[in-house]
Design a binder for these strands. Structure first.
Length: 425
RNA sequence: GGAGAGAUGGCCGAGUGGACGAAGGCGCUCCCCUGCUAAGGGAGUAUAGGGUUUAUCCCCUAUCGCGGGUUCGAAUCCCGCUCUCUCCGCCA
């Protein structure tokens, strides 16, 4: 959510900033809503004040044994007027809220302007990509090994699921544990396990609702519950309605969870293999920082995700997402893309974003300013560190040999004692 | 799943229709006193929204788990829900 004061005082400037994303801020509608809100709210609140003082006078008069009927008659008028006002104000406020929740974040000044993924800006590369020639894709490799079974998953559930077997299942577990260990032991994150089902308030807090509900799996239960699309949701919402002490900042959390995505708009995309699944494992990094520290933290957090790729010796590049490709809640996003030889290109494996106070305002995540003693909004950040399923894909493709066997990266040896290669049994 | 009890500020806890945004205590902050320590005295100490303002101040509104209702007036009465605790059952 954007700062309502900013919206009120500088609506044109906000509109110009959002236009960089290609978002059309309806200035006329906003100013109309705002004008109606202001007059209706002040009017309603003064009626409430009138009612409150009137009620107090009745109490006082009664205790003195005086006649209260003249005041009561007056209260009758206030009451009926107030009822109408409160109803109108409530309706207006929900309209206003819906409008504000639909506004995306203002992009940071350093974010390149652009319309689509083609306008993203590559800022660095690491490693030497192996040539595409002769490289099999991960699905062919995995199936040939007999360790990756899409048909079985289709029987159990449907398309966009997979069954991993044997050493591949074990490799995924090793990867997860490796990532968690690096982030907790080398990067200072606290490890969490969190619910994989969340309520609507949590999804609103991080920005998945109200606009992107189609991407979520909803549970058929009494409660309004959804499967998490990312650990970002439960982890960041730990901050919801909290006021942290400044000395406890930054908070750095890492959590491994499955992620569930309906992939509503992805029909026909990445239909083969494990790239785009309804369910995948991810290790997620989340930070909450002082506002003035968040960009520093953003670079740091991105580096933490990169560290995993480096240790696994997987070639990758880093992009700054352009205004048009960035998620609505983010002020700035770096994507990490890993080299996939079979596709002869880099594919997203991590997305690291600074949300500034956009999520914090939605979820009232605050800290107490040590000098002013007032509450201020935190800045929140997150990034994949990394998407485990896609990391598995990258290892298969980058560590394959001519015979279709997969070498195990050195750094995973402690997690897979004795296993040097995965090959057909 | 069944039965019962409960939810009040940072914490404990009082409050069953009117001067209650909420006693009292603890904690915390500032000041005073005290030659150190201990003790003592005073003041302050929720959040959000709005109005006003350069800002502070000030004013208004809302909030006693959440949502409705009754009433001139609700922490207090009524209805629904959520969560917590205890016992029983079941279960990893």
């Amino acid at each position: 959510m954007l700062d309502p004061k900013l919206l009120r005082t500088q609506p044109e400037a906000v509109a110009a900033q959002l236009a960089r994303r290609g978002f059309v801020f309806d200035l006329v509608r906003f100013q109309d809503l705002e004008a109606r809100r202001k007059s209706l709210q002040t009017e309603t609140e003064s009626l409430q004040a009138e009612r409150n003082t009137g009620s107090k006078r009745i109490g006082q008069a009664k205790s003195k044994g005086e006649d209260v009927s003249p005041i009561l008659a007056d209260m009758d008028r206030v009451k009926s007027q107030l009822a109408a006002n409160e109803q109108a104000l409530g309706a207006l406020q929900s309209e206003f809220e819906e409008f504000s929740l639909g506004l995306p974040n203002i992009p940071h000044a350093s974010v390149p302007e652009g319309r689509s993924e083609h306008d993203n800006v590559e800022i660095r590369r690491w490693g030497t990509p192996r040539p595409a020639a002769g490289a099999k894709d991960h699905a062919d490799l995995g199936e040939a090994l007999g360790l990756m079974d899409f048909a079985a998953a289709a029987k159990l559930t449907g398309a966009r699921f997979v069954v991993l077997r044997g050493q591949l299942a074990r490799l995924q577990r090793a990867l997860t544990q490796f990532m968690l260990d690096v982030h907790t032991q080398e990067h200072g994150y606290e490890e969490l396990y969190v619910p994989f089902i969340v309520n609507a308030a949590s999804l609103r807090g991080t920005g998945q609702l109200p606009k992107f509900g189609d991407d979520l799996f909803a549970l058929k239960s009494e409660q309004d519950w959804r499967l998490i699309p990312t650990a970002e949701v439960p982890v960041t919402n730990l901050l919801r309605d909290e006021i942290l002490a400044a000395e406890n900042l930054p908070r750095k959390w890492v959590a491994h969870t499955p992620c569930f995505r309906a992939e509503a708009g992805a029909a026909g995309k990445d239909t083969k293999g494990m790239i785009r699944q309804h369910q995948f494992e991810k290790v997620e990094l989340v930070q909450a920082t002082l506002p003035e520290k968040s960009y520093e933290a953003h670079e740091e957090l991105t580096g933490h995700a990169e560290a995993i790729l480096k240790k696994l010796e997987l070639p990758y590049r880093v992009l700054t997402l352009c205004t048009g490709d960035m998620g609505g809640s983010a002020a700035k996003t770096y994507d990490l893309e890993v080299w996939l030889p079979s596709q002869d290109r880099y594919r997203e494996i991590s997305s690291c974003s600074n949300f500034e106070d956009y999520q914090a305002r939605r979820m009232l995540a605050r800290y107490r300013h040590p000098e002013t003693k007032k509450t201020e909004l935190l800045h929140t950040l997150n990034g994949s560190g990394l998407a485990v399923g896609r990391t598995l894909v990258a290892i298969l493709e980058n560590y394959q040999d001519e015979g279709g066997a997969i070498a195990i990266p050195d750094v995973l040896q402690p997690y897979l004692p004795g296993l040097k290669r995965i090959e057909k049994a």
